[in-house]
Amino acid sequence: MSELMQLTVSGVFTGMLYALLALGFVVVVKGSGVINFSQGEVVVLGAFVMSWLLTDVGMPFWLGIPTTVVVMMLVGAGIERFALRPLQNESMLALVMATIALGSVIRGLVPMIWGDGLRSIPSLIDQRRYEWLGIAIPTITFWSAIMVLILLGAFGFFFSRSRLGLAMQAVSDDRVAAQSLGINIRLVNAVSWAMAGGIAALAGFVWGSLLGVDHRLVVLGALIFPVVILGGLESIVGAVIGGIAVGLVESLSAGYLNDDLGAGFSTVAPLIMLLLVLFVRPYGLFGRPEIERV
């Protein structure tokens, strides 16, 4: 029983961190409709910038974290400006290919700047894990989950209340109609990518603290998809629920199924879930079922 509790609790908390990864993806879909295959790489870049500023440059946390967020927002806006805007009238195929290409660019660029070795992010809190009633949670995971909740609240508010947020919703609904209403599509696109960059900086901090900073973090990019397919490609609430579901599936299958189905089943369990969801409900739990079946 206590094992089940432990697995459930760590699943839920890790799931919040998956939600953070997925949030950057969802924001881009909301703002520009692009399925971004490079969010994993952008997170890796964020983690490297963070690690570099905090260790090599020696910035304190209160300066290093915001600086990284700003740098990554600029990177995001830059990606939109130089890689995607030239393609804005092309097919979705071209845009998606461009994000795959961007992934390749970042994968090459990062080790050229920072080398192949494993880097680290200094720990913000000395204590490494909290324990209540025999259930242990890494400190960083716990506080990150809290941060994710606050962020989600902020984004929820932004998209439902602020002018720019509503404009972004409108653009993702119908680009042409939004444009004819005088919404500045370029601005909306740029803002959504900048947000994705900023979120990636935070995700890079969290995941880099947990796992160390190196190219392996790219693997996380693949886990974005089960989250957003389950939650709906452009739903913020969906990202959280999807994230928690993925966290639970992974944690529980690691606990109970790995021995029977082959070691490492937990790493593909979320992907199998992704396929099942596609079969049953391709627009996800919180997506709008207007996806056309053809």
Partner: peptide
């Protein structure tokens, strides 16, 4: 205990 090649997070395996 087996560590999957693609695993990023090893919490479960450590336990």
């Amino acid at each position: 205990v087996v560590i999957p090649a693609a695993a990023a997070d090893l919490d479960a395996q450590v336990r």
